[in-house]
Amino acid sequence: MNKITYFPGCSAHGTSEEFDHTLKLVMKTLDVQMEEIPDWNCCGATSAHVMTENLAIALPMRNLVLAEKLENKTMGIACASCYSRMKVTKKHLDENPNLAKKINSTIIDEGEYHGTIDVKSMLQYCFEEIGLETIKSKVTKSLAGLKVACYYGCLLTRPKDVTHFDSPEYPMSMDLLMEALGAKAVDFDYKTECCGASFSISNTEVVESLSGKILEVAKESGAHVIVVACPLCQSNLDMRQPDIEKHTKTKINIPVMYFTQLMALAFGFPEKELKLPKHIVPVEEALKNIGKIEPEPEKIKKTKKAVEAESEVV
């Protein structure tokens, strides 16, 4: 049994309950015990670092201090935005012991910061610590037939010197994870474009334009579903979709799911556990593709053979 310190983030108890729920199911299946940080607070993303200097460090730092007390090796974070704040803060503190000392002594009451805990996003945790092999072994219902576009958003892999995880331009971890579940991950060029999360309330015009472009490209890539790992991305892409459709006068209709929902599905949990009614864009239609395997076109097969023949030395 692996143990992990869990930071759900504010959305997990609100907009992204389905993420939180399925994450817990999946982790249980994978034999991981999640210990939620008692009495955690909001990390302040993104307002704190936009507006203030000290609070931007202090808010995530309090969580880090609390997390260290649980004495697990890793802290897993559900929301990409929280993850980024936590990582950036940790980097600042580790590189800058004076800053750590200053904030620790002036603002935070809960105890000393030591910098001992490893911060990972839940996707990163699945990919790096659990491993695709283990995940594959738990699959009871292959998702074969489902074409997914994996959307990582900006903060999961960027900036590179903060996250140290996957490529900032064309990450593949979620794609590989989806393929381990049996789904087909399509080529998707907008994997790491920003959806405009921090403007989701204050500047909807921007969000609609950015998210619209992502949806458009995803649709074009032939995916049935967009898979995400962040509640903010999910709500932007899902909740704003009807508005976007209205503005662009096109029908997009592509559901946006959390990777954990698909994992839960592949692990054999019934559909009702996925909390599908929470989605604004209905999911059920897309999931019907599971099991429908398109025959590989003759042409492709041929070229594949030809390529093999060419590369081989006669």
Binding site: H49, P159, C194
Partner: peptide, 13 residues
């Protein structure tokens, strides 16, 4: 500066 989303795409490139 207020429109910057801090998505870090620019600094990465």
């Amino acid at each position: 500066m207020w429109f910057c989303l801090t998505c870090s795409a620019c600094s990465g490139r």
